[in-house]
């Protein structure tokens, strides 16, 4: 307060207010007068809050239903993660048994793709927390013979889900984190007394993509391979383009080649896709 004269005048005004009409003061005492605030008075009307709550519940339920009916197939078809892993598994538990395996596996893969990190690490971490859903998936998968043809006939071959494949000691780390758009997990199995060989397969309509992951010591199978073998440093996108075996009716190229890693693991890739897609698969393998 800088001006003393004005301050004195303000004090006079304050004093003069003592003579205000008592009716005004009495009116101002009305504490519950909500007429000044139309919004507040509206929401305080009986029943309004209940109706609003019901509307909110209706909208939430509608949104959940919409998500279930639309995003689930979208995610599966496009390979893009649209839901959290938890939600995916919750939904998978309600799916038909035949669909459970693929749905759950796709969820794990696509969610990892969105994260841009290795599938194997992510799957290991999340797989433990999803034991219950995993058990149901295993039961469903057990009803189907999903063993890869390359391992059929082997007495010790064991069917695995994608999560289990990722958890296979030493070999699981070579399961790619990213797959070409539209590919869905189809089957997987592990063979050998010490799990020396792991096969995982995906499909996209009529197109297949299979990876055989094995230790280099597994010479019997390695000798049978006639596909080109490269070290990881040798394989490039340009070289992949030169490895085209044939073209599919859909226009994709068919590949078959092997990549050998420094720690003695060989990955045999056989399947369809564009050079760019196959290169993406290779680069997503980060053991």
């Amino acid at each position: 307060m800088s001006d003393p004269k004005k301050r004195d005048s303000a004090l006079r005004l304050m004093e003069a207010l003592s003579a205000v009409d008592p009716a005004f003061l009495e009116a101002s005492e009305n504490r519950s007068d909500a007429r000044f605030n139309k919004k507040a008075s509206f929401f305080r009307k009986p029943g309004i809050r209940g109706c609003l709550a019901a509307c909110v519940c209706f909208l939430v339920c509608g949104a959940v239903c919409y998500t279930c009916t639309t995003l689930l197939p979208m995610s599966s078809d496009s390979g893009i993660a649209l839901r959290s892993e938890d939600t995916e598994y919750e939904l998978a538990s309600f799916a038909e048994p035949e669909e459970m395996q693929q749905e759950a596996d796709t969820a794990s893969l696509t969610s990892t793709q969105a994260g841009g990190t290795g599938l194997t690490e992510s799957a290991r971490e999340t797989g433990e927390g999803e034991a219950e859903a995993g058990e149901e998936i295993e039961e469903a998968a057990a009803e189907k013979d999903l063993a890869s043809p390359s391992l059929q006939g082997q007495a010790d071959a064991e069917t695995v889900t994608l999560q289990e494949a990722c958890r296979v000691e030493k070999l699981g780390a070579y399961v790619p984190a990213v797959l070409p758009e539209g590919y869905r997990y189809e089957s997987g199995c592990v063979a050998g007394e010490e799990q020396e060989q792991l096969v995982v397969a995906w499909s996209r309509g009529e197109e297949k993509l299979t990876l055989q992951i094995r230790t280099t010591d597994d010479t019997a199978d390695a000798a049978a391979d006639e596909s080109p073998l490269f070290s990881r440093e040798e394989i490039t996108e340009e070289r992949i383009a030169l490895l085209v075996e044939e073209k599919t009716p859909e226009g994709s190229s068919v590949y078959e080649f092997s990549v050998q890693y420094e720690d003695g693991i060989t990955v045999v890739l056989e399947g369809c896709g564009t050079p760019d897609e196959i290169w993406t698969v290779i680069t997503s393998i980060n053991p």
């Binding site: 006079r12 003069a16 205000v20 005004f24 009116a27 101002s28 007068d33 007429r35």
Partner: peptide, 27 residues
């Protein structure tokens, strides 16, 4: 006294909301 009369006259020119808020603050 004249000032008091003026203030009451002024308060009469205000809306109920303005008057009440003003009095709660300055009375």
């Amino acid at each position: 006294a004249e000032l008091e009369r003026m203030i009451n006259a002024f308060l009469n020119t205000l809306s109920e909301k303005e008057r009440n808020v003003f009095l709660r603050r300055y009375w």
